[in-house]
Amino acid sequence: MALSDEEQRLLAQMEAALAAEDPKLVNALRGTGVRRVHRRRAAVAGVGFFLGLALLVAGISLKNDVVSIVVSVLGFVVMVAASVVAIYSWQHVGGPGAESAQTPDRATSAQGSRGGGDQGFMNKMEERWRKRRDESGF
């Protein structure tokens, strides 16, 4: 159900007041700054991975044995380092709450009671679906 013009105007006023009062909170809730940095870092790590792959292939194709081994090992090390940085950064890109602490549901599911957390999620989604269906009149 869409907001009326009056409700949209009030919401815009509240957002503007919150942004003026506490810009750090607004930035943290949006998460654009931190996610943008991690997304950029993951992209650079992807480029670094392909650079390491190119070094590895170039090292294999060289004729000199010592230089070939050094370049190949260097390429492999660059690939591994880029992979670690990419995985670490991509984990932090996540959704809107990625930079905040884990929620209690998430913490318990990570500790082993995975089935209960998934069932709670499914129940919430079913309830939202029922509300939408009831509100729309179908």
Rank of each mutant, 00 (worst) to 15 (best):
K131E: 13
R133C: 05
K24N: 09
G59L: 06
F49M: 14
M79P: 06
Q13L: 14
N123A: 15
I87V: 15
S109H: 01
G137A: 04
Q102D: 15
Q102I: 12
G75W: 06
S72E: 08
Q91C: 13
S83P: 00
A42L: 01
W90Q: 12
E15Q: 13
Q91I: 10
G112K: 04
G137E: 05
A101Q: 05
L56D: 08
I87L: 12
G95F: 00
E15I: 06
A101V: 05
E21N: 08
W90K: 13
M1A: 08
W129E: 06
V67T: 09
G115E: 14
K124W: 03
K24C: 03
E99M: 04
D118G: 05
Q119N: 03
E99K: 02
I87K: 02
G46P: 00
A43D: 01
M1C: 03
F49G: 09
A101T: 10
V34W: 01
E7S: 01
M122V: 10
G33K: 06
V77Y: 04
S68F: 05
R114S: 08
I87A: 07
R35Q: 13
G120S: 11
E99S: 10
P96N: 06
V71D: 01
G33T: 11
R114A: 12
D105C: 05
F138R: 12
A58E: 09
K124L: 09
G46W: 03
E21K: 15
V84A: 13
A107S: 12
Q13H: 07
G46F: 02
S61Q: 11
A81F: 15
L3A: 05
A2R: 14
L10D: 11
G137D: 04
F138C: 07
A43E: 13
V37D: 14
A2Q: 13
K63E: 15
R130G: 06
H92F: 03
A82I: 03
S72D: 02
R40I: 14
V73P: 01
V71M: 08
N123P: 00
Q111T: 12
K131M: 13
V84P: 00
A17E: 14
D5V: 07
E6Q: 10
L29D: 00
V93C: 03
G112V: 03
Q119L: 14
F49D: 00
A17P: 00
G31Y: 04
Q111V: 02
G59T: 04
V66W: 08
Q111S: 14
R35F: 00
A28T: 06
R132Q: 07
P96K: 10
A17R: 08
G112M: 05
M125T: 11
L53F: 12
E15D: 09
D134L: 07
K63Q: 14
A20C: 03
L55P: 05
V44S: 08
D65C: 01
S4L: 04
E135D: 13
W90I: 02
R9F: 11
V77Q: 02
R128K: 07
